[in-house]
Design a protein around this nucleic acid. Structure first.
Lengths: 185, 185
DNA sequence: AGAAATATGTCAATATAGCTGACGTAAGAG
DNA sequence: CTCTTACGTCAGCTATATTGACATATTTCT
């Protein structure tokens, strides 16, 4: 029986079809490097935590929720949804698992009792810290290999990459030392 | 006070192991900032392309395949799997759609005819370029807002973030100008 | 007070992107 | 001629996301 493979193959391998391609913009070219670098860097960055999370039966979604809840104690649901840019239905499955497992807890808001404010439990904080330690190792290695000003440069670069609509909010949650860096603007 | 800003990489120079607990504590804190910055930066970076891809009925998976096929004409399946770190079954669904849609084509290898070498078609190259242009815009804005040396600093940073096992291969695919930057072995 | 808006939960159906395991086939390598 | 490699494919499963509809408190507005 003839396979689909044979049908799809183009007979007589010769020159690539789009042979004369893409000399279009010279200034465009170097940015393609960044697209690729960013992909690989992020791929390996998240890969670290993934292995640890498996031991707990959690995935990346749980990691993100736990991270932000632990970093922003008392975070309301709506704020978390806005950070993650997902729907409440998506969040709910993951959040419920974290609540059931006792890594996160929710308390009704004191001012607005419709809100459920999220907090990491002791266990949750411990796991969050374990995960952060793992990923911090990578950053520490990286900055150990680079000149001393690389940390500030990287922080500036990453912050600039964020959509301007969210940039100030992201910056507001950096540690005070780093946040102060470009308040001179 | 900093004396000289050394831009060259300190290769293989093992970072000093934790000198003291107090310092570890201090160094730990800012890294959490980077974890968060990296998340937000990547979230918005990929968000750009997602909107364009919807018009074609494609997702991120298609984007990644198209990107690497277009950047590495004649890429064999196995190499693509290794780059993406996914299984062939996962790749196959996505790749088949790109083949059927005429954005990618496969030719048997000239040396090893078991291989299917992947190429972007003219249409595929056009879409890849459109996507790259979109994402390049963000980088161009970012580097427009930062000092002139930020571009090299960002490239060094991102490359250092990649697992050492893949770093040389990633670097080998950078544009020659950038690749030459730290060939000082 | 009553209506409207808000914050959240939930049910159902669906899409996408990944996975493991098992099996098949053509072609290179020993 | 066997073994291995490079790939395709079937089947079934999981994780993460989506849209749409509806329910329930609680706050806010008129």
């Amino acid at each position: 029986m003839k396979t689909i493979v044979e049908r799809k193959l183009v007979k007589g391998a010769a020159a690539p079809p789009a042979a004369g391609r893409a000399q279009t913009e010279v200034q465009n070219e170097p940015m393609v490097d960044f697209i690729e670098l960013f992909f690989f860097a992020y791929r390996d960055f998240v890969g670290d935590a993934d292995r640890l999370l498996e031991n707990y039966g959690f995935g990346r979604a749980h990691h993100r929720v736990l991270h932000f809840v632990s970093r922003r104690p008392g975070l309301p649901i709506a704020a978390l949804l806005d950070i993650l840019k997902i729907t409440k239905q998506s969040l709910n499955r993951v959040l419920k698992q974290l609540l059931d497992a006792g890594f996160v807890e929710a308390r009704p808001g004191a001012i607005d009792r419709r809100q459920r404010l999220l907090f990491a439990t002791a266990n949750g904080a411990r796991l969050a810290q374990e995960l952060a330690a793992l990923q911090s190792e990578r950053f520490r290695r990286v900055f150990g290999e680079l000149p001393p000003d690389a940390q500030d440069a990287a922080a500036d670069f990453l912050l600039a990459m964020v959509n301007s609509s969210d940039r100030e909010r992201v910056r507001a949650h950096l540690s005070p030392r780093r946040r102060r860096r470009d308040e001179i603007a």
